[in-house]
């Protein structure tokens, strides 16, 4: 197709969008509502997946040492831990180091536990070769002398997976339903604008316009509708995600799990919303055009 023809289609589609006034507003609103829900859902789902993956890949076992255990016993425990199969590294973190982490994560009010008041345990961080070994090592470590408890990420992971799976399945079904609804709404809205232009389409056909030539401005109009409809959802998701990200980051320091960083995550989400908007808009208009183009 010639560049000039493409330009003509683009300007025709924009003119028609303006001329259809409130009908265009109605179609754009339909896309906005849909994409708002889709956008929120996507942000939750992607991050749910990310966190459950982080938990799953967590190869650390935290071995809590009994309180008031002397250095000699701690050294012995470290050796015992190191000798367990599949263990790659054992790091010691004293209870004051642990408290410092909490203070930096949750705020200075936790400083009151400094010194003898510190209620935390000394911890050995045991790293294993694979996530699958963590459960076995945690069980063995818990049975060793001077160990009060041993925990690993897997238990939390399994619970989390169940939630994430549920969210994913229901959410996907819900999203597909929403997208269908949006296509339906858009195609109906555009159908009304096409009805008012039936005569014009008739004249186009009489002077020898091909169906694809007739279809282009309508298809583009649908795409613009979708793109315009994605603006509010983009802005909303951007702001909401930044707020959520900052809130979640406070706890990140202590638990080691994190959301996707704002950049480039939001760029991808915005792009995805725009693409989904454009595609459902274009599909909606093509669907509603079909019967006007039968010879």
């Amino acid at each position: 197709m010639k560049t000039e023809v493409i330009k003509r289609h683009i300007s025709d589609s924009l003119k028609s969008l303006r001329r259809n006034g409130w009908m265009s507003v109605a179609a754009v609103s339909a896309v906005t509502v849909t994409l708002l829900l889709v956008g929120i859902f996507m942000a939750i789902l992607f991050n749910g997946n990310r966190i459950s993956q982080q938990v799953e890949n967590d190869v650390q076992v935290r071995v809590y040492v009994d309180r008031n255990v002397n250095q000699k016993k701690k050294d012995k425990l470290r050796k015992e831990l190191k000798d367990l199969s599949s263990v790659t590294k054992v790091t010691y973190r004293s209870k004051s180091t642990e408290l410092n982490t909490i203070v930096s994560g949750y705020g200075s009010q936790w400083k009151m536990f400094k010194g003898d008041e510190n209620p935390l345990n000394d911890v050995f961080i045991v790293e294993t070769k694979s996530p699958s070994a963590t459960m076995r090592i945690a069980k063995k470590a818990a049975k060793l002398d001077n160990v009060s408890d041993a925990s690993y990420g897997g238990r939390t992971a399994r619970k989390l997976f169940k939630y994430v799976d549920g969210v994913r399945n229901w959410g996907l079904g819900f999203t597909v339903l929403l997208l269908f609804l949006a296509v339906f709404l858009i195609s109906n809205t555009i159908r009304i604008t096409i009805l008012s232009r039936r005569e014009e389409i008739g004249v186009m056909r009489l002077v020898g316009a091909t169906n694809s030539y007739i279809r282009w401005p309508f298809l583009l109009e649908g795409a613009w509708t979708g793109l315009l409809g994605s603006i509010i959802p983009m802005v909303f998701v951007d702001i909401a995600y930044k707020v959520a990200y900052n809130a979640m980051n406070i706890s990140e320091a202590s638990n080691g799990f994190s959301l996707y960083p704002v950049m480039p995550f939001l760029v991808w989400i915005d792009l995805l919303l725009a693409v989904i908007g454009i595609v459902i808009g274009a599909i909606g208009s093509v669907v509603s055009m079909r019967r006007f183009l039968k010879i």
């Binding site: 010639k2 001329r19 005569e199 014009e200 004249v203 002077v207 020898g208 007739i214």
Partner: peptide, 21 residues
């Protein structure tokens, strides 16, 4: 006649050439 009311005389005629690109 079947002219398009929202287009000028020039545009009505040009239209037939536009659609054949």
């Amino acid at each position: 006649f079947k002219l398009l009311p929202r287009l000028t005389i020039f545009e009505n005629v040009a239209y037939a050439m536009q659609v054949i690109e």
